[in-house]
Amino acid sequence: MRAKDAVGRYGENVAASYLTRCGWQVVDRNWRGPAGELDIVALQGTELVVVEVKTRSGDGFGHPAEAVTPAKMARLRRLTGQWLDAHDLHPTSVRIDVIAVRTSRRGAATVEHLAGVC
């Protein structure tokens, strides 16, 4: 596994743990559809939330959430529709969130949750 992939996998694990601690139900991880991959699909009550996780180990490339471009948001919307078509789940509403994870050489990673980005 490449170092970049390992950092991303670590960030997804941190994000999934964070959501579970917040009382959310993680229903799918790393789901692959024709347009790409959804990192985390979760339920917050009866609302379906697709979570894009961006992890950075430094500030050289800016804030992690800056990597979620308009093109990426459009892809996430398409993938969310594909996920819903493939699953027998009927949420009351759907939204897309971003969780930005910053790793630390010492101590725990920091998590920033941006709700309803698109």
Rank of each mutant, 00 (worst) to 15 (best):
E52H: 06
C22Q: 15
A74H: 09
M73H: 09
H63A: 14
K4M: 03
L84W: 12
M73R: 15
K4H: 06
A100L: 01
G8Y: 01
L84G: 12
V101T: 05
L76R: 05
T69I: 06
E47F: 07
H113T: 13
A65L: 06
R32N: 13
H90V: 11
T110R: 09
R21Q: 13
A100H: 03
C22P: 02
T103F: 05
G33K: 08
E12F: 02
V101N: 01
G8E: 06
D39G: 04
H63K: 14
S104C: 12
V41P: 03
A109F: 09
V98K: 03
W83Q: 01
A71R: 15
A35W: 04
R32H: 14
T69K: 05
I99D: 04
G11K: 06
P91K: 03
T92E: 15
T80W: 09
A16E: 10
G107C: 01
R32C: 13
Y10L: 09
A65R: 12
A100C: 05
P34M: 08
V50N: 06
G62H: 07
S104L: 05
R32F: 14
G62W: 09
E112M: 08
N13G: 13
Y10S: 00
V53S: 02
T103V: 02
L19I: 08
R29K: 13
Q82I: 05
P70L: 11
R102V: 03
V7E: 01
G45N: 11
C22S: 14
R21N: 12
A65T: 06
R95Y: 09
V27A: 10
A108F: 13
P34I: 07
A108Y: 10
R105N: 14
D39M: 05
F61L: 15
C118F: 14
R78T: 07
N30G: 15
K54Q: 06
V50H: 06
M1T: 13
R9P: 00
R9I: 14
E47T: 15
E12K: 00
D39L: 08
G81F: 13
V14E: 07
A6G: 12
E52I: 07
A100T: 02
I96G: 01
L76D: 06
R77W: 10
A16C: 10
V26Q: 02
G45W: 12
L84D: 10
P91M: 05
A6D: 13
G23H: 09
R77D: 13
G23E: 10
R78S: 06
L48S: 01
A71S: 15
W31S: 11
V117G: 00
T69V: 08
V117E: 00
K54L: 02
H113W: 12
G8H: 03
T103D: 04
R21G: 08
A42Q: 10
A109N: 03
A6K: 11
R75I: 11
Q44G: 11
T103M: 12
V14L: 08
R106N: 12
G58N: 15
M73G: 08
S57Q: 07
A74R: 13
L76E: 03
E47L: 07
L114H: 11
V68Y: 00
A15Y: 04
H90Q: 12
A109T: 07
E37Q: 00
Y18H: 10
L79W: 09
T46L: 14
D97A: 09
V53A: 01
P34Y: 02
V27F: 10
